[in-house]
Structures are given as structure tokens and as C-alpha cells.
Amino acid sequence: MTYTAETLSGLERDAAEILGRYPVKRSALLPLLHLVQSVDGYVSPDGIAFCARQVELTSAEVSAVATFYTQYKRRPNGEYQVGVCTNTLCAIMGGDEIWRQVSERCGVGHDETTADGKVTLERLECNAACDYAPVMMVNWEFFDNMTPDRALRVVDDILEGRDVKPTRGPSTVASFKEVSRVLAGFEDGRADEDQGVGDPSLAGLKVAREQGWEDSK
């Protein structure tokens, strides 16, 4: 174990809070894995050993769980996880071409990281925003209605060290490690940040308001 005493005590404090949320210890494993990613930027051997100790499993058992889920990274991840949805709907609406151009610009393929450690690219499966297709996700924030130009601008901003802003969500995209900490269940005080609800989410409501329709109550 190579964690410093300070890192370790922070991890242990957080782990105790996570364990307190569940009646059975093992249920804490998924958030604990997110937690170690928030420190190491991936599920490191140290992280696995740490989780194993917390939930009283072997390292092999923890690895077996970690390798099942795509959000747990087995190699140091980029600061930004950039996913282009290439599931059917998005792919056909233009996601395939966006993917091609983004991959070309970054010079890496699926599940690969740029040499500067900024971007890990991913061909994304459906992320439940099909009404905003084609969709891109950066550190699990929504970048809706993408075109190749918009997508390349986002990627260029990241590669050149500028903050990027999602179309729905917070004012800026947090880093992979910061987001991993939220996924471990720790609030970061950004829930009220908002880019406005998108038109597709309000499409039916707008029609109903224009027509003066209300439910029959």
C-alpha cells in the first residue's frame, strides 16, 4: 500500500461514511470503487486492496466486481472522459461521423488516452438523452445536439486547457476525479447550477400549454 498517511486517513473517513449508508457492508463496494477513482484516477491495485479491506473481501473478489463495470478504469484515466454516443439512434443522426472526427483530432481510439493525459475517448452506449441526439458526454455531463464542429470545439478547449460547459448541467465540467467523488455519494455543492432545461424536455409541455390542455383533474 503506497497511500500517504494523510490520503489513507481521508479515504478511511470517507469509507466510513459510505459504509454507514447500507445495512450490509458489501453494498458499499460500488461507491467505494468510485471513491478510489476520485483519488487515483482509476481503480488502482492500492484502491482494490483498500476496498477489499473495507468490505472484508479478497482483492480477487473486488477485482471481479470492478472489471464488470465500464465506468471503473483499469488504467490511469484522462482528466476528461469524452464519450461519443454511437448506439444506433445517435450513430445514424450523425454520431458515427462525430466519432470519426473527434477520434482523428485526439489521435486516439476507443478506450485510449491522449499522451498529455487530458482525454480518454470512448464509444458510448445509449446515455438516455436520445431526444437530444447526437449526444456526447464529458465526464458524464450532457453535450446535446452535437455536430462535428461543436464536438471538435469542446475537444479543442479541453486539449488547450480551457473549461468546458455542458448544454444541460453545471456551469463547467468537473474533472474525472472530482466527478468520481460525486459518484461515491459526496455532494459537491453544484446541484443548483443549471444551463436551463432543454427544449426537447419541454416539447410536450409546450404543446399542451399552447393548446390549453390540462390533465382532467
Binding site: 436520445c130 431526444d131 441526439a133 426537447p200 416539447a203 410536450g204 404543446v207 399542451a208
Partner: peptide
């Protein structure tokens, strides 16, 4: 009852329509 119908793809105004 009602349910949310999610339109996506080649329509002019994709989105959520509760009906």
C-alpha cells in the same frame, strides 16, 4: 393513466410528450 412518450430521431421536434 398517463405516461411519458419519448420521441427521438427523424422528427422535427423530438422530446418528451406526456399523454
Amino acid at each position: 393513466g398517463m405516461g411519458i412518450f419519448s420521441l427521438s430521431g427523424h422528427v422535427n421536434r423530438p422530446g418528451q410528450y406526456e399523454a
